[in-house]
Amino acid sequence: MPDRISLQVLRYRPEQEAEPTVQEFEVPCHKDWVVLDGLNYIKDRLDGSLTYRWSCRMGICGSCGMTVNGEPKLTCATFLSEYAPGPVQVAPLRNFPIIRDLVIEMGDFMRKLPEVKPWIIRKEEKPLAEGEYLQTPEQLDDYKQFSMCINCMLCYAACPVVGLDSHFLGPAAIALAQRYNLDSRDQGAAERLEVLSQHEGIWGCTFVGECTKVCPKNVDPAGAIQRYKLKATIEWLKSFFMPRGAR
C-alpha cells in the first residue's frame, strides 16, 4: 500500500468564490485511517480553513456524511485504504445546499421531520400507578430496525426523488414515522397517515432503492416506505368497502 494518498476535496468559500472548486491534498494513508482522519490531518497540518462536520468518529452521531468517490458515506466509517492508490474525491452530500466546503444545510429535513410526528402519541396516558408500558421482544422487533436511524442524511443524498422534488418527505422521515407507527405503545398512526399518504409522502417514492443500499445502520427506509404503501392502500380499500364501525 502506498504510504500517501491524494484527497481531492471540494471547497466552497462563499465570500471568495461563486462556485465550488476542487483542492488537492496529500495525506498519509495508514491502514487504520478513515477518510475523516485524512480530513483532520488536512485541517491540523495543511489548511486550517477546511470546514466539515464530525463528532463521534464511530458511526453514531451521523454528522460526518459526505460524498466519497461519488457515493454517500460516513467518512468515519470509510477507510482510505479502500481507495488506494487514490485519488479520493470528497464532496458534500448531494441534494442539499452547501453552506461551506463540506458542510450542508439540512434545515429542510429538520422542517419535514416533525410533520410526521416522530414521537409516541397516546389517546390517553395510562395512570402512573399502573406502571410502564410493557413490550414483548417481538413487539420491540417490529420497529427496532427503524429506530436505528442516526439522521445522517446519506439516504437523502442517494435518492433521486429528493433531488428532483423538494417537497418529498424523504426516506429517513418516512422510516422514522414507521418506527412509531409500528410501536405497540403508539396510537398515532391515523394522525400520521394524513401526511404520509399525500403525494409528497410515500407516493413520491418510486422505489429506486438506493436509500437502503447506502444506509450505514441497515434501517431499510425503502422497505419502510413500500410496506407503508401496502398498508395505506389497504386502509383506503377498507374505507371504501367497510362501514365506519368495522374499521
Binding site: 466552497y12 462563499p14 465570500e15 461563486a18 462556485e19 465550488p20 441534494n95 442539499f96 445546499p97 452547501i98 453552506i99 461551506r100 444545510e105 434545515g107 429542510d108 422542517r111 423538494s166 417537497h167
Partner: peptide
C-alpha cells in the same frame, strides 16, 4: 431545498 435563505453578511450564499 424549498426555503430560500436570507442573504445577509453573516448568512452567506448557499450553493445549490
Amino acid at each position: 431545498m424549498n426555503q430560500q435563505p436570507n442573504y445577509t453578511e453573516h448568512h452567506p450564499r448557499w450553493y445549490r
